[in-house]
Each structure stands twice: as C-alpha cells, then as structure tokens.
Write a protein that binds this DNA or RNA. Structure first.
Length: 318
DNA sequence: ATCCCTTCCTGAACGC
DNA sequence: TGCGTTCAGGAAGGGA
C-alpha cells in the first residue's frame, strides 16, 4: 500500500533517471489504467514529451512535462513504477510501459488495477486534479530537498514554477477538521482532505504514537491530544521516509528496491505481539472497514469505563 | 454537512 | 483435489 513515504521514495529514486529525459511513446497494455480521456489521446499526448521535474503531493506522484502538462500517478493498493532497461521482462500484471527515448522503460505494474495514470493540462488542470487533497505534512528529513510544487526553485525549469504551493498541516488545521465531528478519528485521518498522504499503515502508527484510540470521535480530542497527534503523524511519516518505505508485500521503489520500515512498525500487523511500550498484547479491530491495530492499554477505548484512571482505594462513581 | 455503504479488482487464504 | 467464499483496501460516488 504505497502511502506518502513510499511515494516520496519512488519520487526520489525516479528523479535521477527521469528528469530531463524524453518519452518516446506510451504502450498501454491495459488501457483502463488511464484516468481521464481516451487511451489514444493519452498516447498522443505523451509521445515526444520531456520530463522537466518530478514531485509528490499526498500519495500522488507528479511528473512534470513540457508545455505545462503533468502526469499524475496514483498507485492505490498494489501499483508499482519501475525503471527498466530496454526489452526487460514483462510482469504478468504489467499495465503500461512509458518508453523513454534513451531506451529506458518505465513499467507501471498493478495487480489489482486500482492505480491510474492521469494527464493534467495547464495549472488549472493540475489544480483540478489535486482539488480533493488537504494540507501536506511538511516532513523534516535530511535527505529531502523539501521542494514542493510551486515553491521557489532556483534550478531553472522544474515544471512547477507556476504551480501554487500546498497548504501545510498544522495542529490548528487538524483541530478545525476534527471539531464537532462524530466519526472515528481513524476515519477522519484516512480522509485525504484532513491530511494528504496518510493510509492505513501510518494512521495506525500515528494514533499509537499519540496514545489515541482509533474509535475516539474526532470532536472528542482535547487540544493537547491534537498537538500530540500532529507530531505523531510527522514522526511516523519521517521514519517511513528514512527507511525508504514499508514493504509488506508489493511495494518497491522505482529501482526495484524494498523498504525496511516494516521492521520498525510499532503496531501495524503486530496483533498478538507485545506492545513495544507496555508489553500488553496488541489487538486487531475493524474501523471504517479497515484492519486496525491498537495497544489496549496505551490507547484507551472510549467505550470502556476509565477504571484504570481511578485513584487507588476509590470505588463506585464517587 | 456528515456519515456510512458500495463499487472497483485480483489473488491468497480459507472452509468444506 | 477442487470448488466456493472471504478478505485485503484507496478513493469515488450514492443514499440516508
């Protein structure tokens, strides 16, 4: 499941080969992977295009092309983008090949066919394409060039000069999204309008780090809890980037490399194992039709009476 | 407006 | 062995 750290890693591994290269043609093995317009239009638009830059917004990879066009890639569940040499073997789930003029082939592989390649035309087209995305978590990371779409850039033509930069997540932006909401906090965090880039793995990790139970309603969070959650989101994502992503099954970077963050996860898919903080057994719930992993001791279930918080010796309601 | 459900899609892991 | 069922889930769209 490529989430923000995985897409960021793909972006970084793809950039050295792709930026400055020209596309020769698109070969749509499964035309359904084109997100907008017709397959022939897609092929005609891509042929001869030059990649002028590459960036990420939420879980979208944005490949800037000349003449103010962008190729937006969303990998959804099982999508992969891999740079291959000319004539490379074809995976059985290969959906498209973007042939470069230098002979490289960018393979789009996607077992479950949820991923999409979408062309955006002009800055307005790109804004429309990204219209449902909320604020971007600004991740501090030594490797990061920290260049986001629309940010000042002295390197000439990145392809993003005229693109407005994203808003950035703050504790206040989270608070205003959660205020008055009765839905579980996990559902709100999976909504890309709250924060762009979180998915099932990093939501569970962030909620555990913040000691917040996923079934707590958004509106029930106190200000200090939202501040903790804000920092926990940043920490969980930064760790994911540092470890080049979480490879539980399908995920690979653009050079075919695996990430190592799966060995650093605190709760995700660790049900039955001890909590790294208190040793209690991690349990698995379903929230928003998603497998959800919590420490029942560190993350207090809102439906449980708060007996452990009662001072020793005090019984009853008081 | 908010929330929940369904749809898309394949393959692994089940149960009988 | 083989068949059918369930599960995994990101995001769009629809209904309440």
């Amino acid at each position: 499941m490529p989430e923000l750290p995985e897409v960021e890693t793909i972006c970084r591994t793809l950039a050295p080969i792709l930026v400055g290269s020209a596309f020769a043609r698109a070969e749509l093995v499964w035309p359904g992977c084109v997100g907008n317009g017709s397959a022939p239009d897609f092929e005609a638009s891509l042929a001869g295009s030059i990649c002028t830059g590459i960036s990420r917004r939420g879980k979208y990879l944005l490949i800037a092309l000349d003449h103010s066009r962008w190729l937006g890639v969303h990998l959804r569940m099982t999508g992969r983008l891999t740079m291959m040499d000319s004539g490379a073997d074809r995976d059985r789930h290969l959906r498209a090949i973007l042939h470069l003029q230098d002979g490289h082939e960018l393979h789009f592989i996607d077992q479950r066919k949820f991923g999409r390649l979408t062309l955006a035309f002009g800055v307005d087209g790109l804004r429309h394409f990204l219209r449902r995305l909320g604020p971007e978590p600004a991740i501090d990371d030594a490797q990061s060039s920290d260049r986001h779409p629309g940010e000042a850039d002295d390197s000439g033509s990145s392809g993003f000069e005229n693109v407005p930069g994203p808003d950035f997540m703050t504790a206040s932006s989270l608070a205003s999204r959660f205020s008055g909401r009765r839905a579980p906090i996990k559902s709100l965090l999976l909504d890309q309008q709250s924060v762009a880039g979180l998915g099932n793995i990093y939501v569970d990790e962030a909620l555990f780090r913040a000691r917040i139970h996923p079934l707590r309603s958004g509106g029930s969070l106190a200000a200090h809890e939202i501040r903790n959650l804000y920092q926990a989101i940043r920490d969980a994502l930064a760790q994911g980037i540092e470890n080049r992503g979480t490879t539980l099954s399908d995920y690979r970077d653009a050079l075919g490399g695996t990430g190592s963050n799966q060995t650093k996860l605190l709760v995700f898919r660790r049900n039955g194992k001890p909590c790294p903080v208190c040793g209690a057994e991690i349990i698995r719930l379903r929230v928003s039709a998603r497998g959800t992993h919590v420490c029942p001791r560190c993350q207090v279930d809102p439906s449980e009476p708060s007996a452990p918080l009662r001072p020793p010796g005090v019984t009853g309601e008081g």
